[in-house]
Structures are given as C-alpha cells and as structure tokens.
Write a protein that binds this DNA or RNA. Structure first.
Lengths: 335, 335
DNA sequence: CTGAAAGCGCTTACAG
DNA sequence: CTGAAAGCGCTTACAG
C-alpha cells in the first residue's frame, strides 16, 4: 500500500488540508507546521496521486500527441525530429506526453478527459473529423495540415515555397525536364507541394505533363520503391526530381540505384525538410531545409499558451524553408 | 461542462450504480433498463472520466515507455523500430502509452501512480537506480540491458553472438585486421559486444590491440564522426570494422567517406540490428539482423501478463541475431 | 434487478 | 494559521 495524504496528516498531527497546502506551496500554513509536514513527507516518501488531484482540479497534466494511422510513421524521421522538439519543451513543464497511433485509440484518448490538450500530426478528416474534434472541446494544435476551414492553430513548413526553391535549384543547375515525387493528394501537404511545383515550372517557362508527376498512394516509402522505379523508367527524359519529403527522396535514390542509375550523375534528387539522419547518406541529400525541431517546440508552446488561457495572436505559423545543396544534385548529362 | 454519470442516471431515471454497471457490462441490470440507459448514454454522448474510474479501481490504464536521457534517442531508428512493436500491441489493448525522456520527468511519471507499469529502454543505474526502481513497486520490463542483478524481466538481442557473427563474416571474406566501433562501456550492451568481438577474434586466432577498439563516449553518432575518422586514420591497417549498432555503422561510413575512403572497397563495415531505414543507404548496410519489432511486442506482452497477474516463466528473453550480407562488405584489398 | 451509501486520494471554499 | 466538510466522477459491497 502506498502512503496517502491521510497517512501524512495523521503522522504529522495535522489535517489533510494543511498537507495539501504545503504540497502546492499555498500560503496559510505556519512555518513551523510546514517544516514538520515537509519532514514527514520526506520520511514517508510520500508522493501525491496525480489522478486524484486531477479529478478535483479538473485537469490531468497530460498532453496527447496524436500521429496518423500507420505504424510506419514512427520510423519516419520527419515525425521523430518534430517529436524531439516537442519532447524538449515538454520536459521543462510538468506535463506528461501521451501518444497514440490508431484512430480508435486516439478517439478514446481525446474524449475520456484523459488529456488537457492535444497536438495532432497532419490529421485526416476521415479519421478525425473536424466536427467531432470541435465537439470534444479540447485545446488542439495541429502540425502540418488539416482542413482549410480548421479553426485550430497550425504550425507547418512553407512546403509550397520549398518545392519551388527545389525546382529552381535544379533549373539553375541546368535541368529542364524536372519531375516531382509526391504523396497522396488526400493530404494538403501534397496539394501544396504540387502547387509549388506547377507554379515554379510555369514561372520558369518549363514544360511538364502528367508523366512528370508521380503521386504515391501511400506514405510508406519502404514499400513504394517499385512504383517509383516504374515511374522513372517510364519517362527517361527526366534528369532531376524534387520530392515532397526526404523520406521519399530516399526511396527515389534506392529505386534509381536498383535501375542501375547513379545519383546524381544520371539523376539529380532533391528532398524536403532536411531530416538529420539523411545527411549521412551517400550521396548526401540535397534538400530544402526547415527547422523541424523548431516546429515541434513552437506547436507545444502554442498549446501551452492556450492551456494557460492566453490569447493566441497568430493562428497559422509557417516556417520558412531554404535550399541546401549537397551531393545528390549536379548538372545534367548532355542528352 | 461535459456530461457525467449523474446526468445520465438522472435522465434515465436510474441510479448511478446501474449506469456504471452497464458501462462495464456487469450483470445485475434488467434488459429493458439496460437498453434505456444505453440509449441515454448514446444520446448525451456520455464518456466516462477515466481518471475518476482509475481512482477507485486503483489503476490508471496507462503504461509508461521510458527512454534514456538525450533527445537524440528519438531519431535513433533502433528505438523507433522497437517502439513500433510496442505500439502495435498496445493498440489492441485499452492501455495508453505515456512517454518520458528526461530523468526528472521519468521519476515523476513512475512514482505518482500515473501508470500501471513501465517499459524501460536500457536504463542507466545513475539515472534510475535499481534500489529506487524496486522501491516504487511498479511492474517493469526492460528492453536491452540493465544491471546484472536486476530482478526485472528483460528482452534483448543476443548482441554478443551478433558481433561474433559479424567478425566471422568479415573473416570469411578474407579480413584479418578487424576493428570494432563500440558504445560507452557504461552500458551492458557495449560490454557484451566487446566480449563478442574479443572471443571471436580469439577463436579465429586473429590479433588485436587497443588500436582495433574504438569506444565512443556518447551514443550520439551525429556528433561522433570526427572521433571515428581519427580512429580509422590512426591505424590504417584495419580493413573491416564491426559496429555495435547500425547507427554507429552509419557514422563510420560517413567518417570513411569524409576521409576519402570508399566503402566497401577500402573498408568493409558491418552494422548491428538491421534497422529498416538503413537498407536504403548506398551502399546498403551489411548487418546482423534481429527482430526489433518483435522485441517491442514481446516486451509489452510480458508487461501485460504481469499486469494480469500471470506468472512469467522466462525472466530473460534473448532474440537471436543473424548476419545479412549486403553491399558494405567485400574482400579486402591486397596490401 | 436496483439503489443508497461509502470510499478512491486529493483540493478548496468556509468558518473559526 | 488551521481544520471539518463537501465534492471531483466514478465503482462496489451491501441490503433489499
């Protein structure tokens, strides 16, 4: 049996009210009494039951971090890097982090008063509908994208501009026939990337057709290498591709290698996000950098502000991206 | 104000006891009454407050997953892959997963009755002392290693044998001068890897000295490339290295590349664990495979068993490893 | 089959 | 400065 506040009160010869007061540094306890209580707490190694406290204070001290269905997600360094940012600031607070993966778990987590607020990674309306999310009345911050009409604060990379920079960088190197490897269009992120690609191509006066655009059905690159290889094979004129994520770029390089192409000699590849681990690849990945850790930090900071009742000024926080030239890109071969 | 069990009872015209009974499918409620209650629950969109329930049932429905200090950890695919296994089985239960990173957070999480059990990733005695861990009386399963005298069930790769296989594989390819890149000796894992290395070398009749052994002070490979490069440079006779993790192997390849060495032509490198993402590297990594997802699943399964009061048979579960030859290894050059 | 009551471990007006 | 009491939202003997 673990010791509770009553035990402490009894041993210290005071009421539980007094113990509670010193526990939360509230005034109204004499210095001598307080010291005595503190000693007893120490001696008995008493720790308050956070659940019980939460019940009366009507807050749990927990924050949910919700990642979309699909376990692959954890292995995606994009998420783990942002998570690192979240972890960094949560460690300076008294909040605990609850994670959930499947959509049934998520719902239960969000609707059972188990958390005070939630950070949602690119939620999908099919799984977490806007209406439902609003109905539970929980403070929410989303990372990445959600529906256009979402009322929740959002923090995300400027992906549209990022892709534009990537296309421009390839163009500067001399590429004319540029492709894009994109995620499923059910995600706003992919939509914006495609927009960025198209407008960059247009501005540069470059031609493109459907054969320049590969849209994956799923995010799981580990299983998509084959499709990418077919795409690359189908239209050999492409000399450079931009990808909507580093993870995809990794798949592209893998696919190219499988086909006997050498990156960057035969194909230049640009990623997006600049996930730390990929700097270790050979060739190291040219990409469009964004401060992923910063995104995580910022998202949690906003949630914390909401939790403290602060008014938030900026509903949408967009992190700027910046092209980094490494060694997966070069001048195209003369055809 | 969210609706509570009293509201439901009032509207349904019954006592809270009856509502509670249908909530948890307990007998003792007439079919008609039960149906009526269920309808009210539905209509009012009532969800039980898990915190309140936990208070009386004396369990929280939460499981802690504790990873060692150092945010880099999240980006280590070794952890995220195991985590994937944990997530997979937790999603089939009603438990939620609480994660914590810093040691102060961990202690708070474990001692405030916030969780029913915990999975500890290679805990360090300096942060989570055995004595303290025992004193909190929480069901615990450790992944990786802890102290020799730890009473907690443990699941881990057979790392000693894994390294032996790696050394043997290099030997088969013709390598004689084999090095090892290891983690800090404060970790049992590193100790076992070193043992495996030494006994393999001994069995093969190969010579080695301190110059064959590089021990990192920290696990953060992203910052250790320099040290590895110095090590490789210091004793150029080494033609192949085994590493105590794929993550380290990645650092070795990076370091070698920086020095102008080509892997595997100038240096063969073997990783350990076979983390999914590294199959995408060029060259793809030769490594010693272990079922990381399985380790995660198994660890949680054991914890769940303990939580259900089952007696556990095997205190230590060791997953076998198996060498996989990919393209970061080859026959050494003639010197 | 059903409900009144006590209790899980806390906190917080309220009264003194 | 201090304590008795009520209450947070549930569950569970106990009695009928």
């Amino acid at each position: 049996m673990t010791v509770n506040i009553k035990d402490v009160a009894r041993i210290a010869g005071v009421s539980t009210a007094s113990v509670s007061r010193v526990l939360s540094d509230k005034p109204g306890v004499g210095a001598a009494t307080a010291d005595r209580i503190r000693k007893v707490i120490e001696d008995m190694d008493y720790r308050p039951n956070l659940g019980a406290r939460g019940l009366v204070k009507r807050k749990t001290g927990n924050i949910a971090v919700v990642v979309p269905r699909g376990s692959f997600i954890l292995n995606n360094p994009f998420f783990s890097t942002i998570l690192e940012g979240i972890a960094k600031v949560i460690d300076q607070t008294d909040y605990n982090m609850l994670m959930s993966f499947t959509s049934s778990q998520q719902k239960r987590l969000l609707e059972t008063q188990s958390v005070d607020g939630a950070i949602l990674f690119s939620p999908r309306n099919e799984e977490l509908s806007l209406e439902w999310l609003k109905s539970i009345g929980l403070p929410i911050v989303v990372i990445g994208s959600y529906l256009e009409e979402s009322p929740f604060p959002c923090v995300r990379p400027d992906d549209e501009d990022g892709i534009k920079q990537a296309v421009n960088a390839l163009y500067q190197l001399g590429h004319q026939n540029i492709g894009i490897i994109n995620g499923p269009m059910s995600s706003m992120h992919s939509v914006r990337c495609l927009n960025g690609y198209k407008s960059a191509m247009l501005e540069l006066g470059l031609n493109y057709s459907d054969k320049n655009i590969y849209e994956m059905e799923e995010f799981d690159v580990l299983k998509a290498t084959k499709g990418i290889a077919e795409f690359l094979n189908d239209y050999r004129k492409i000399t450079g591709v931009v990808c909507s994520s580093d993870f995809l770029a990794m798949g592209v390089i893998k696919a190219a290698t499988t086909m006997g192409l050498t990156v960057p000699r035969d194909l230049s590849v640009v990623g997006a996000d600049d996930v730390p681990i990929l700097d270790f690849m050979t060739p190291s990945l040219s990409t469009v950098h964004v401060d992923l850790v910063g995104i995580g930090k910022r998202a949690l900071a906003i949630l914390l502000d909401i939790l403290q009742g602060k008014q938030i000024r900026k509903k949408d926080v967009v992190f700027k991206m910046e092209y980094i030239n490494r060694s997966s890109t070069t001048t195209p071969k003369k055809q």
